[in-house]
Computed example of a mutant assay.
Amino acid sequence: MKLHEYQAKGIFADAGIPVPESRLASSVDEVMAAVEDIGYPAAIKAQVHVGGRGKAGGIKIATSEEEAREAAESILGMDLKGYTVEEVLVEAGVEFKNELYVGVTMDRAAGKPVAMVSTEGGVDIESVAEETPEAIAREHIDPAFGMHPYQARKVCYEAGIPKEVALDVASILTTLYDLYESKDASEIEVNPVMITEDDEVIAADAVMNIDDDALFRQPELAEMEEETYEDELEKKAGEYGFDYVRLSGNVGIIGNGAGLVMTTLDLVDYYGGAPANFLDIGGGAKAERVTQALDMVFSDDNVDAVVFNIFGGITRGDEVAKGINEALESFDEIPKKVVVRLAGTNAEEGMEILNTELVEVETTLEAAVQRAVKNAEEANQ
């Protein structure tokens, strides 16, 4: 679960991390009232769950009433990487001489949390990690003991943090780790930590993502969760409870199980097709579930053909076939050709039950994928 910047900063402030004065606003009038209270310069920042807001025009600095109004009018309601901006954070501007990066995340290879500090703040830390990894100092933390103060000081020293602010930066890092642990975060960072001319350290940004599986013990954070989707298809997938990712191709893919869907996706690519989506409907492919899945892929204008790859485990293949028949019969007109491959428990019985007037049937996954790719090619001719 992703927190908005204003939500994360509220948590940071409560924990003692210095953050700029700010107000949340959802209209131009509210923005103007906020900057009147806060003063100039002021940063007006889109509150959406995406990175790179500044480069996309979602963050603007206003030094006058006219600039503040123009920024509010341009940001509120804008489409920012597929998200509509409904709220902005109006924040006091910070005069700074240096920008740092401070964060904690899980190093899955090491099996431990890792604290990271860099003097290359204010830019995408992923780019820094890829292009100049030596610019990021790292310190792994034993979760059984937590972060020791000396570890925070050590990683700041290795990153080359100026001695005038090193202890303050180490304090921020220690607090971030405490929040990472106590709030069940999967990632927590400040980019940038701004250093003022007076050597004050201020968290000018805030990123905090929470482990979904731990929300049951974080009721206050769970109340902050909101459903945001990049488009109507993702919204529909959320309503249906599907694991769904939209891709750029034209072959719709439906399967029960993430591994099975990934295999199908790879085969579509292997046989010269282009996958349109990843859609895992999970176990128990009954008629309603199948209907919802087909509604998903049929609603995607990019899809020209569909391949349905089902493995019958606890759910028998004949029951799945009945579900597919019932689902397709519910459509007045089947808009795109559907190829079905069944395997597993009672697969042969299921293949016999499938209505071949509604679907094309193949006994192997390879053959099903090849036919779906061919159907998609023919639909474009």
Rank of each mutant, 00 (worst) to 15 (best):
L176P: 08
Y244M: 14
D198V: 01
I202S: 02
A214Q: 05
Y240P: 02
V193D: 14
F242A: 03
K163F: 15
L247C: 06
G255A: 15
G238C: 03
E225W: 02
E234A: 12
E158G: 01
S171D: 15
D178S: 13
D184V: 05
T228W: 03
E220M: 02
L176D: 14
A152P: 13
S248N: 11
V251C: 08
S186G: 15
G252S: 12
P219T: 02
D243E: 13
V190D: 15
E187N: 11
I210E: 02
Y157M: 06
D178E: 11
L179W: 08
G160C: 09
V193H: 12
A166R: 15
E200M: 06
L167E: 15
M194R: 11
D231A: 02
A170F: 04
A203T: 04
Q218A: 02
I161C: 12
E232F: 00
A185V: 04
G241Y: 01
E232H: 00
C156W: 10
L233S: 07
P162D: 15
K163L: 14
L215T: 09
D211T: 02
E197T: 02
L176T: 14
A258V: 13
I202Y: 06
D231S: 04
D243P: 01
E239Q: 13
A222I: 01
F216A: 01
L173F: 05
Q218Y: 05
G255T: 11
A152C: 12
E200T: 10
F216C: 01
A166K: 07
G252E: 06
Y229M: 00
V245A: 01
E239V: 12
G252T: 09
V251H: 10
G257A: 14
L221Y: 06
A222H: 02
T174I: 04
V207L: 13
L176Y: 14
K183F: 09
A258W: 00
E225G: 00
T175I: 06
F242P: 09
G252Q: 05
E200W: 00
Y177N: 01
R153S: 11
C156A: 14
G255Q: 07
Y180R: 06
I210K: 00
A206C: 05
V155C: 03
